[in-house]
Simulated scan of single mutants.
Amino acid sequence: MDLDDVRVVVTGAGRDTGLLIASAFAARGARVFLSARDLGAARRAAEPIRAEAFRCDLADPASVREFAEAVRARTDRVDVLVNNAAQYREGEISDDEVEQIIAGGATGTVLLTQHLLPLLRRSDRPDIVTMISGCGEPGNHRSAAHPAFYAAKHAQAGFAEILSHRLRPEGIRVISLFPPDFVQEGPRVAGSALTARSVVDCVMFAVGQPRDCFIREFRFEQVR
């Protein structure tokens, strides 16, 4: 799939799944704008794939606005926005961590999408991809994630659902993924845990479809 000069924004791309997503787009010729809460991590991730690095703390509205403004200063459109950033926690956590998880996953996702929507509307192939998690599915209780993470992911799911309905007439595809807890590396065989690379392959498949194909969601079977 040739994505030459496709403009892609990926949040939470300093490492792991976000970096894999950014790398997959860059390898296909896309111009990638990636962010992380730590600018140093963003720069280290961006250098080998020739992406552009930015700091963005989604739990901080001012940081979200600064990131969106920086992207607007460098491109006249965004073709793909990948809302990937998330703070996963288990066990007992502090009040501040609860606030960070919900603010980043819920408020931050809404604000960044809202700020970049004018640039997405200038694209002839606009996609909004959100890495939600199985924790955003009604009745899901399989993850050991803290309830705050569940709350943030349910907020993302609700946002993506109404966004899909309202933006469909404009030709903007809203694609949501609901993977269970997955591993970064693994054998990728039946019976094994879902891997990050398999999740990334789903993203690349969805954005590569013709514009009459609106894949709204990816739901995954559980290993357990």
Rank of each mutant, 00 (worst) to 15 (best):
F25I: 05
A45Q: 03
S164G: 14
P48H: 08
R44P: 00
E66A: 13
H165T: 12
A86R: 02
Q87M: 11
G91W: 03
A36H: 02
R216T: 14
V189T: 14
F149D: 00
L3Q: 11
L19G: 00
A26W: 08
K153M: 05
R50M: 03
A30N: 06
L111Y: 10
H146S: 06
V129N: 00
S192C: 06
D79W: 07
I162F: 14
F214A: 07
L177S: 07
P126W: 01
R121Q: 11
G208M: 11
P179A: 06
H154N: 02
E69W: 05
R74A: 15
H154G: 04
S63L: 11
P138I: 13
A106N: 13
D79A: 07
G105Y: 03
S192K: 05
V200D: 08
D57Y: 00
V8G: 01
V174M: 04
T130C: 05
E92C: 03
D96H: 15
I49Q: 05
S198A: 15
A85H: 01
D95F: 09
F205W: 13
S164W: 15
A190T: 10
P48N: 07
R142G: 15
T113P: 06
D76Q: 10
R188F: 00
I102T: 11
M131E: 00
Q100D: 09
F149H: 08
P126K: 02
E66V: 01
H115D: 07
H146F: 04
R188E: 14
S143I: 14
F214S: 02
R74D: 11
P179L: 07
L116N: 03
F25Y: 15
G171K: 05
V183I: 12
C213K: 09
A26R: 01
A59G: 12
F25K: 00
A73F: 04
E170Q: 15
F218H: 04
S192M: 10
I132S: 02
I128G: 02
L39A: 13
V207Y: 02
R55Q: 13
R50E: 15
A106P: 01
E92L: 09
E90Q: 15
M204V: 12
E221Q: 11
A53L: 07
E161A: 14
V189H: 09
I128L: 10
F54H: 04
G105H: 06
R211V: 09
P210R: 06
A86C: 10
A145Q: 11
A13R: 02
G186M: 07
P187V: 11
T130R: 01
A144I: 06
D95Q: 10
L3T: 07
N140K: 07
A106M: 12
E221C: 12
E221L: 13
A59W: 01
S123C: 08
E137N: 12
T109L: 09
A106H: 11
S198H: 09
T11I: 12
I132F: 08
V8P: 01
P210N: 11
L20T: 01
G158C: 10
V78N: 00
A26S: 10
G158N: 09
R211Y: 03
D95S: 12
R122M: 10
A62S: 14
S192I: 08
F220K: 02
G29Q: 11
D2S: 14
A41Q: 13
R15K: 15
L81N: 01
D2T: 14
A144W: 03
L34W: 12
L112C: 03
E97W: 02
A68G: 07
H154P: 00
F33W: 11
